[in-house]
Every structure is written in structure tokens, then in C-alpha cells.
Design a protein around this nucleic acid. Structure first.
Length: 644
RNA sequence: GGGCCCGUAGCUCAGCCAGGAUAGAGCGCCGGCCUUCGGAGCCGGAGGUCCCGGGUUCAAAUCCCGGCGGGCCCGCCA
């Protein structure tokens, strides 16, 4: 990929510093910052930190770096020493000349490709196929998809996978419900006129709550507990998609010998593929998945593969890893159950291995508990199956790295998973497995509990934001066709949601206030979409840019220069966001770029400028901004619209 | 009880990992632009004990130790 002059200068600067100081290039690249004030330069490196330690005179280092740049033919950038920093300063006029040629050729900004591309699996979303996607999943999808896009743009071969957890206890409750009701999930959803994932979600919550209520009644639970459950059941009955469904489930539980054992029985039958339960389980998961896929499609999130947990069981892969575990020297019994001795793995394999210690962050003063492999009835646990799944992901893709986008609440099992892999001799797989964890999404005033059927659905939020966007778009485009308004409003809703979920770094919890998401103001996805639409509008009024008459020197004027340099930071920002798995860095950068463009545009007229030398130069800057925003937003999975 | 994560302006968040250049944005608030190359915009202003206390350092929002507050986890759930 061809580099713009600013990015080319950045990498040459980094390389020159690295060789001059004898520091690894990656380290230098990481430490280069945008100076706090524009006068200092366009990129700065804290030289004094190294100059002293390496015994290199700062002045001499700057001299050598400048020399290297000249040798490489980069005559549009210079280095200055100031405040202990080596600052790279781009000559805007010369850089603009080179930039115009690129723009004319149709060049699109983007992160430079890495020299050694990897095969990277990104497993994300992987929602239990028993209810619609909720806001937590939306964050997972937004992160997983943005990471995938960034890594792919960086030149890696990315494989996006959705893991269908259809063999767990939660899924068993949904299956149990459908078995009691004698309904085919998809047919029932269709005839009830509800989205299939909603129907499955209702059946799951009702069955789960009914079991709990019956068990509570029999065990003589306190009155408050019974009342609370009765309240939940009343609410579920009100939302009943199939008439009489709840009372049928309740009656069944009332006459069951042991309600709590019912789901366990289903679980067993699914795991060991006992018909007809196994087939019903598939149909339940497929129905839920149909709804989930629709939501994902709305969000613009796609996958390369959908992996069934039951396939891992039924193909014998889980049994195989279980056998390996049993033969392992770390095999043990924990409270009577089959387990892997994680504390011993830590002592024998992690502590003496510096690389493993660095890769696997162990909590201090806390012993990671043994990993239980099977229940006493012989069925496996989630992490046991995930062991098989992780190896499967490596095996079918030849992956160098596997990234699991999974909520922070699963840190402990994900840590156990990596340690277990290490114990079973899969060191490479363990050390290259990344748990990309993120905190929850809180919605004010709404407590979520999918077990009670109380969820804040992605569809619901999207519809809410879209309804508001429809009004806004209609008001601004009187007489526009209805379908066009709908389409634009949908893009705005998706953009608003995805941006809100990406701009905060993953380890911080998000409070998602639908009221504020509806407020399509600055610092939002729609603000970026609006700025993009603005560039498109200006350019279409201006017509084709005549690069021949544009004077590059006109781009050296302070406000124009700043905009140009800023827009040309995109490649480096995107590369860093990809390498450090931090899409929020790109999101924050795009806001700054939009601010800068809007601010500049307020001051200078583009199409009314009578002087072609400056007019075409300014039009080129609008074109550059448009392409940078387009590239950046696309990397984040935020849809664009030329008009809104 | 223990572990992990978070704590920066009234609110939402950058900066922290890899210590250094006057701590930054946006929202909200106050005052302007109101002759729209797209006002979902622009300009200006007020607003900060960087949770607290120690320590390391020439230099700490950033590193270390001890607290405080919030969230999550410590299940034969996931």
C-alpha cells in the first residue's frame, strides 16, 4: 500500500531513531506522540529518556536521524530538538504536492500492512441461543467486529467465528420448555407473529422461573421469595406469546417428581445425542439463531463460521480432550469430581517459565482453583467443551492467535482455560489465546435478567433511536421518499449505537442512556456521519477537483496545514489501534478530525473562492477529509450516508 | 474474607501499560455567530484537591505501598 507523505515520514523517523539509538523499532513507534502544541512539530519522540542511557548526545542523535531521512529522499520533513524531544515537522507545501498526486490516483488512506501477517481468529458475540441479543452482546459485537476489521486492514488473515452454546444448562431449560409445550419453535414463532428469538427467550425464562418457583414452594422458601417469583410469573404470563403456555409449563412442574432434575435430564440427552431431544435442541437453537442473525445483519456484523457446541460433543472432540486430561499428570479429583490441578500447573509450568508468566497474568495472592471437567452424571462443563473448541479453532484455521471477545465476568474460567491448555501440553495455543474482556453495559433504570426474561434488547434500542432519527431526517429533507428516510435513519441508529459502544475503552463499564443516545449531538456517531455527509455535499457542489491548478503552497496556511496533517494521521492511528487492539483510539481520533474539519470549514469558503490555486487546494483538503472519515468509520463498522 | 477491573471538570470520556513539553475533548451552563459552500455547525467564557495518604524520581494523573468508593468474580452455571 502506498503511504502518504506524513505517514511515510513517520515511519522513516521511527526507523531512523531506532537505528540511531539502538532501540527496537516497535518500541520507538509506540513512544512517538503527537506534541501537545502544534508549533512543536507533528510527531515527537522523548529523546532524553534514551540519550542519557545510551550515551548518545541528543544533538548528535537528531543530526543522524535527519541525515537518514535525507538519504531516504524524504525532503519534506525535518527534525528539531526542543524540550528534550526530537520533533518531526512536515513541510506542508511539499507534502501537499505529493498528496495531490495520490488523491488524483484515487488513493485511500488506511493502516499500512504488517510485514508478517498472522492468521487471527476472532470469536465474538457467541450469545446463548436462548434469547434475543441484549446490550451487552451489542458491545461484544461492536468490539469483535471492529477488531476484525482493523486487523484485516492491517493485513492479517482474520477469521470471525460465532460459538453456539447449545449444550449448556441454559439451553436445556429452553428445550425443556418446548418439549412440555409440544411446539416446534420456528413454526410457533411464525404463527404467533413474534421474532423467533423472542419466543425462545420467553419459553426459556418461563421454564426457568417455573422450575424455581416450584422448587421454592416445595422447599418451603420464605414468603417474600415466593411472592417475588409469583410476580415474575405474572409478568411473563402477560407477555405470553402462545395462549395458555405458561399454565401448561406450571402444571407440568407441579406434577413433576423433581422439577430441578428435569433440565439436567435434557442436558444429558443433548450431550449424548438421545433422540428426539437432540433434534429438538437443534431446532430451538436454530430458531433463536434466526432472530439473532437478523439483529446482527442490522448491525452490519458478519461471521465466517458458526460453530455448534453440540458438534464438538457429537463428533467426539470433547471426549478426546477429556481422555487427554485423564492421562495427564495434572489430572486430579476435586471434591469427588474429575478435574485438572490448576494450582500445580501454575507451580510447575507457569512460575518457572518467564514467557508464560508474562503472557498469563496470574492474580497475586489468589490460588486459581482446579478446573472441574465433568459433572457427576458424566456430562461436561462449559470450560471443558471450550478446551476442545479452542483447539478446534486453531486446528481448522491454522491460527497464530485466537482472540475471544468475552465479558469480564468470565475472567476466571478464561484464565483456567489457558492454564488447562498449558497443562495439557498446548503451550503455543495457551500463550496466543487472548481473552479480550469488556465490562458491562448498564441501562439506567433497567435491571437485566435474562433468566426472568427481562432484557434490554438491541432491536428495541435500535428501533428507539431510529424512530427519533426518522423525525430528524424527515424534518431536514422535506418531501423525501419514505424508503430513503427509513434507510438513512437506520444507518444513523446503527452508527449511533456502534460508536457509543466503541468510544469507551473495553475495561470500563458503559452507562448507555437511550435518552442520550437519541441526542444526536456532537461526540457521537451521527456527528461523524454528518461531517462526512457535509464533505460529500460540498464536493458534489464543487464538481471534479482540478489538481493541476491547485497550488500546494496554499495548503501550508496554518488552518489548512493543521487539517491536512491531522487527516493524514489516520494510517498511523489505525495501525496502532489494530496492533494494540484498541478501536477506541480510532474512534476518539475521528471525533478530533471532524472537529478540526468543521472548525476550518466555518472560516474558509471553498467553492466560492475565485482563485483556482487556493480553491482547488481547499477542495483537495475536503476530499482528503472525506476519505479519511470514510476509511475510519468503515474500520469501526459505522455505516455512511452521502446525505442525511 | 480473597482476587480482578474502574475512580481525571456538574455529566460522558481521552491521557496511565512504555513517568517528562502549560492536564485535554464533548455534553450541560453563560455570552456571541443567525447573509447555511449542509447550523446535527462555529467562536468565546466559566468550570479540575487528576479518589485520599505515603514512597520512588531531577520530574508522578502516569510507577510502588497502604487506604476509600463502585462493579465483577471466587458454582458439578456460563
Amino acid at each position: 500500500m502506498e503511504l502518504d507523505p506524513v505517514t511515510e515520514a513517520f515511519y522513516a523517523f521511527a526507523e531512523a531513531l531506532a537505528s540511531t539509538l539502538g532501540v527496537e523499532r516497535g518500541e520507538v513507534e509506540r513512544l512517538i506522540v503527537k506534541p501537545p502544541r502544534e508549533e512543536y512539530g507533528d510527531y515527537g519522540f522523548p529523546l532524553m529518556r534514551y540519550a542519557r542511557a545510551r550515551g548518545v548526545e541528543p544533538r548528535e542523535a537528531v543530526e543522524r536521524v535527519s541525515e537518514t531521512l535525507r538519504e531516504r529522499g524524504i525532503d519534506w520533513a525535518s527534525i528539531e530538538l526542543a524540550g528534550g524531544f526530537a520533533n518531526l515537522k512536515v513541510d506542508a507545501a511539499r507534502a501537499a504536492g505529493r498528496l495531490f498526486k495520490l488523491l488524483e490516483k484515487g488513493w485511500i488512506p488506511g493502516p499500512p500492512r504488517v510485514e508478517e501477517p498472522q492468521v487471527i481468529v476472532v470469536e465474538h458475540t457467541s450469545a446463548n441461543p436462548i434469547h434475543p441479543l441484549h446490550m451487552g452482546h451489542a458491545r461484544n459485537s461492536a468490539l469483535g467486529d471492529a477488531l476484525s476489521r482493523l486487523l484485516a486492514a492491517r493485513g492479517h488473515r482474520v477469521n470471525r467465528r460465532f460459538y453456539i452454546n447449545d449444550a449448556g444448562l441454559q439451553a436445556a431449560y429452553a428445550v425443556l420448555g418446548f418439549k412440555i409445550l409440544g411446539l416446534d419453535p420456528l413454526e410457533a414463532a411464525e404463527s404467533a407473529g413474534v421474532k423467533p428469538d423472542e419466543l425462545v427467550g420467553w419459553v426459556y425464562a418461563s421454564t426457568y422461573t417455573a422450575v424455581e418457583a416450584e422448587a421454592a414452594k416445595r422447599s418451603g422458601a420464605p414468603r417474600e421469595k415466593l411472592e417475588e417469583l409469583a410476580l415474575h410469573l405474572a409478568r411473563l404470563e402477560e407477555a405470553e406469546p402462545v395462549t395458555g403456555a405458561l399454565s401448561r409449563i406450571l402444571d407440568y412442574m407441579a406434577s413433576s417428581e423433581d422439577p430441578e432434575a428435569e433440565a439436567a435430564k435434557i442436558l444429558r440427552e443433548v450431550e449424548f445425542r438421545v433422540e428426539p431431544t437432540a433434534s429438538l435442541a437443534r431446532r430451538v437453537a436454530e430458531a433463536a439463531l434466526k432472530g439473532i442473525r437478523e439483529t446482527l445483519e442490522r448491525l452490519g456484523v458478519s461471521f465466517d463460521a458458526w460453530d455448534w457446541e453440540t458438534d464438538l460433543l457429537w463428533s467426539g472432540r470433547v471426549a478426546r480432550i477429556l481422555e487427554e486430561a485423564r492421562r495427564s499428570r495434572f489430572y486430579t479429583r476435586h471434591k469427588g469430581a474429575e478435574a485438572l490441578d490448576i494450582p500445580r500447573i501454575v507451580r510447575e509450568l507457569v512460575e518457572p517459565d518467564p514467557e508464560a508468566r508474562a503472557s498469563i497474568k496470574l492474580p497475586r495472592g489468589f490460588e486459581v482453583p482446579p478446573l472441574i471437567l465433568t459433572r457427576s452424571d458424566g456430562t461436561t462443563l462449559y470450560t471443558t467443551r471450550d478446551l476442545a473448541y479452542t483447539l478446534y479453532k486453531y486446528e481448522v484455521t491454522g491460527a497464530d492467535r485466537v482472540i475471544n471477545v468475552i465479558g469480564a465476568e468470565q475472567r476466571l474460567p478464561q484464565l483456567q482455560l489457558r492454564l488447562a491448555l498449558l497443562g495439557l501440553g498446548y503451550r503455543r495455543e495457551a500463550l496466543n489465546l487472548i481473552h479480550y474482556d469488556y465490562e458491562m453495559v448498564n441501562v439506567p433504570g433497567r435491571r437485566m435478567s435474562s433468566r426472568r426474561g427481562i432484557i434490554v434488547a438491541v432491536d428495541e434500542i435500535l428501533d428507539e433511536v431510529k424512530a427519533r432519527a426518522v423525525e430528524e431526517v424527515r424534518a431536514r429533507n422535506p418531501g423525501a421518499p419514505r424508503e430513503w428516510i427509513e434507510d438513512v435513519a437506520e444507518r444513523i441508529a446503527v452508527g449511533a449505537l456502534r460508536f457509543a459502544l466503541l468510544r469507551t475503552s473495553a475495561p470500563r463499564p458503559i452507562t448507555f442512556d437511550p435518552e442520550k443516545a437519541l441526542d444526536l449531538k456532537e461526540n457521537s456517531g451521527p456527528y461523524l456521519q454528518y461531517t462526512y455527509a457535509r464533505t460529500v455535499g460540498i464536493l458534489s457542489k464543487h464538481g471534479p477537483i482540478d489538481y493541476g491548478s491547485a497550488d500546494p503552497r496554499e495548503c501550508a496556511e496554518p488552518p489548512r496545514r493543521g487539517l491536512m496533517i491531522e487527516a493524514l494521521r489516520l494510517p498511523v492511528v489505525a495501525a496502532r489501534a489494530a496492533d494494540s487492539l484498541a478501536p477506541e483510539d480510532l474512534a476518539v481520533f475521528l471525533l478530533g478530525l471532524a472537529d478540526r474539519f468543521n472548525s476550518w470549514y466555518q472560516k474558509e469558503s471553498v467553492i466560492h473562492d475565485p482563485n483556482p490555486a487556493s480553491r482547488e487546494c481547499k477542495a483537495a483538503l475536503v476530499e482528503l477529509t472525506k476519505r479519511s472519515l470514510e476509511a475510519g468509520l468503515t474500520l469501526l463498522g459505522i455505516p455512511l450516508t452521502p446525505r442525511m
